[in-house]
């Protein structure tokens, strides 16, 4: 089943009088359980494509579907609702709320989804254990290492049982060991829970984790190795 589908998407940014075409007509389909890497040099459009799939941005032309629903027809609040329940995000910078503890950061999307307190508590603890941070639950981001922060971000993204987790350069700010740890956790969760991962990267060590590699250049998909079957 297709978790997301992008049809002939273009994205043009206008800065002053200058127009830049970040995507020039992209078609992409991601099915349930994939562990897919979007690769390409800087400026190739991989982050823009990830943002369109994540409903953080709208294509200039073309369509984006999430779980069969055409998201490009939805309004701002409806897109927020879809993100809230179906999409988890992991960013290059350790995107945690600095005033909240690891526990509270993971709890936040569950609160937004209206989960009951007892259920929420169990789920947060389960996620903390899954990323090996049970002991660090009540530490704030500035008391955690970069790798630990990114693991909290992974736990937060997975806490809502999303259909799709989008990761933008998830290891870019981590050393080799922490980068490997984060990728191992993501791969394990993909295998254990079947959740679909799409990550943008240009790090060869990360690419080797992918079951499928989609290569972009100058806003177009130039290579799609098509290995979309789950390993």
């Amino acid at each position: 089943m297709e978790v997301t589908k992008v049809i002939n998407a273009t994205r043009t940014f206008k800065i002053g009088e200058v127009e830049t075409q970040a995507l020039r007509g992209v078609d992409l389909s991601i099915t349930n359980g994939e562990f897919t890497a979007l690769v390409g040099p800087s400026g190739s459009g991989k982050t823009t494509l990830l943002q369109l799939i994540g409903l953080l941005d709208q294509p200039t032309t073309g369509s984006v579907f999430i779980n069969g629903k055409e998201a490009t027809r939805l309004n701002r609040d409806q897109r927020a609702d879809l993100r809230k329940g179906a999409i988890g995000f992991i960013f290059q910078f350790f995107a945690l709320i600095p005033t909240l503890t690891a526990y509270e950061n993971i709890e936040l999307p569950l609160l937004l989804n209206g989960m009951k307190p007892a259920e929420r508590k169990a789920r947060v603890n389960e996620m903390l254990e899954a990323v090996g941070l049970g002991e660090r639950a009540h530490h704030r981001p500035d008391q955690l290492s970069g790798g630990q922060q990114q693991r909290v971000a992974v736990a937060r993204a997975l806490s809502i049982n999303p259909s799709l987790v989008l990761a933008d350069e998830p290891t870019a700010n981590l050393d080799t060991e922490n980068g490997k740890q984060v990728m191992d956790i993501m791969q394990k969760l993909n295998k254990d829970t079947g959740v679909t991962f799409v990550f943008a990267t240009h790090d060869p060590r990360v690419i080797k984790y992918a079951q499928r590699v989609v290569t972009l250049r100058d806003g177009l998909i130039v290579e799609n190795n098509g290995n979309s079957t789950k390993a």
């Binding site: 994540g54 953080l56 701002r76 609040d77 927020a80 609702d81 879809l82 993100r83 809230k84 329940g85 995000f89 960013f91 910078f93 995107a95 945690l96 709320i97 600095p98 936040l108 999307p109 937004l112 989804n113 937060r156």
Partner: peptide, 16 residues
């Protein structure tokens, strides 16, 4: 601003 972006990304609505 970036935190607001994170909150919007995880589905928080403008009114919240």
């Amino acid at each position: 601003t970036r935190e607001i972006g994170i909150l919007l990304a995880i589905g928080m609505k403008g009114y919240r």
